[in-house]
Amino acid sequence: MIARRLVLACPLCLLAAPARAITLHGRIEQGAFVTGTAAPGTRLALDGRPVRVAAGGEFAFGFGRDAADKATLAITRPEGARETRSLAVARRQWIEQHITGLPPAMVTPPPETLERIAREREMLREARGGHDTPQPFFTEGFDWPVTGRISGVFGSRRILNGEPRQPHFGVDVARPTGTPVAAACSGIVRLAQTGMYFPGSTVVLDHGHAVSSTYMHLSRIDVRVGQRVAKGEIIGAVGATGRVTGPHLHFEIAWRGTPVDPQTALPPMPEA
């Protein structure tokens, strides 16, 4: 198990008139998933990217692994007043993870597979970042889709068969093939695709407000595109499809297609 500090949610209040306070829940740091509340009718944008605010005032946004030290939250109050707030984004230290035993074609794909890989990446990009559904499913919170030994963490620098590759953008939970995988939060299925080159069989759920979750390397898929699923509903099973060295679930959360650290949105992993 790769140990790391769990990010604990703590409120940060942006001072304003009491009736119009904007409250953020979560640490403001690289990789963080942040939720909050504002007066209904407030409009928000983070560094120019719109942040949908629900009818009840709930909203969510996230910071990528390599987010800049500062971010700007633009606020338009219900009565039309505008202001901007500067958010200091704390830097994080990322571990280095060495993985060996991968088939060479899964580290350096053969040229004839590159078009397929590009096509599948576009499918994932659209499923994770192409929806801004108004229903705020994310407000019910996230649970672990499967529990067990954490074998990979968000943000780690990946060295595959001795060759540096892109960072890890999810959290891995090692469990036997066939272990049921549950929806971490209610949502709508945007992708249910078998046999992808790197991620293997994959499901993407839309949780509203451009928040999504992704479930990779599945041995089976139990849902279809367009289906609405409830939190805790079984959507598939742990497997070893795609680029893996053993059965596990690779789980991601993203905002507007930008992966964030799932452990900033999840409770602590239950003890075995």
Rank of each mutant, 00 (worst) to 15 (best):
P259Y: 08
S156P: 09
M269N: 03
G187R: 02
F251T: 00
A19E: 14
W144L: 08
R121N: 15
F59C: 10
F59V: 10
I22G: 04
G148P: 05
T23D: 13
I150Y: 01
A81H: 13
P247N: 06
C10P: 00
W144T: 10
V181Y: 02
W94K: 04
A237L: 11
D69G: 13
V153S: 08
G80W: 11
R158E: 07
P259W: 01
M196P: 04
K231S: 00
F138K: 00
R220L: 12
T214W: 05
E83P: 04
D206M: 07
L205Q: 01
V89D: 09
D261E: 09
P247I: 06
R91F: 12
T35A: 02
R27V: 15
F251P: 00
P134M: 06
T264Q: 05
A68D: 14
F138Y: 04
A182P: 11
A81I: 13
S213R: 01
V107F: 07
F142C: 03
S212V: 03
L266N: 03
D261T: 10
T108P: 10
E163G: 06
L160K: 07
L46F: 06
V171K: 00
R256V: 00
L102V: 06
A90Y: 03
P78D: 06
T177C: 13
I117W: 10
G242C: 09
S212L: 06
V153W: 02
L191M: 12
G41F: 02
Q227I: 12
E122R: 08
F33V: 05
R128H: 07
T139G: 08
R91I: 08
T179P: 11
K70G: 05
G155D: 10
V181F: 07
E83G: 12
R158M: 10
P262E: 06
T113D: 13
I99E: 04
M106E: 13
F61V: 12
P109E: 08
V225F: 10
A105W: 11
I95H: 13
A3K: 09
T214Y: 03
T139L: 11
